[in-house]
Simulated assay, not measured.
Amino acid sequence: MLKAPGYKIIEKDGSTETFRIYGDGFIFHGEHKILRVESYYFVKYIQQEYNPITQLTENAYD
């Protein structure tokens, strides 16, 4: 989860989202410590996984 005073998604496609962050941004995730975003721009890569039942590649949101 991204927490910042403000942000805007400036580009989005099927597997990435590019954000413009205003102010101090932090990433919170259950599998690691809090990370401080050290740039005004942040690219989020959405993990892709293959579903053998549907035989489709799908975005993984966990």
Rank of each mutant, 00 (worst) to 15 (best):
L2M: 06
F19L: 10
E31S: 15
K33E: 14
E17H: 00
Q47D: 13
F28D: 09
D24A: 07
T16K: 14
Y45G: 07
T18A: 06
K12L: 10
N51C: 14
Y50D: 01
I9S: 12
L2E: 08
L2T: 07
V37K: 03
R36S: 11
G14N: 13
I34G: 04
I27S: 06
L56Y: 12
Y61I: 13
S15P: 02
F19K: 01
F19I: 02
G30Y: 06
I53K: 11
A60K: 15
E11W: 07
F28R: 08
T54H: 10
E38H: 03
G6H: 14
N59M: 10
F26Q: 06
E31F: 02
E58R: 08
A60L: 12
F28I: 13
T57I: 12
E31K: 15
G25F: 01
I10E: 07
I10H: 11
Y7R: 02
Y40P: 05
F19Q: 01
Y45F: 07
Y41E: 13
A60G: 03
E17S: 05
K44T: 05
P52W: 13
K8T: 15
Y41R: 11
S39M: 02
Y50M: 01
N59D: 12
K3R: 09
P52M: 01
I27P: 01
E11G: 09
T54S: 15
Y22H: 07
Y22A: 10
Q48F: 03
L56W: 11
T57C: 07
S15Y: 04
A60N: 13
I9N: 10
Q48D: 08
G25R: 00
E49W: 12
L56E: 15
E31W: 00
G14F: 13
G23E: 05
I9H: 05
R20N: 10
R20P: 00
F28Q: 09
P52G: 01
Y50I: 00
Q55W: 01
A4I: 01
E58F: 07
F26C: 02
P52N: 04
R20F: 09
I10P: 02
T57L: 08
Y50T: 00
D24F: 03
I46F: 02
Q47R: 15
N59H: 05
A60P: 00
Q48I: 12
I10C: 03
D62Y: 13
K44M: 11
D13R: 10
I9D: 07
V43P: 01
K12E: 14
D13M: 02
Y22C: 04
K3A: 06
I27A: 04
Y22Q: 11
L35E: 11
D62G: 08
I34P: 03
Y50K: 01
F42S: 02
T18K: 14
T16D: 04
D24Y: 04
A4D: 02
M1H: 10
P52T: 00
L2C: 09
F42L: 14
A60E: 09
L2D: 06
H32V: 06
Q47M: 15
S39T: 04
H32I: 08
Y61T: 13
R20T: 08
N51H: 10
P5G: 09
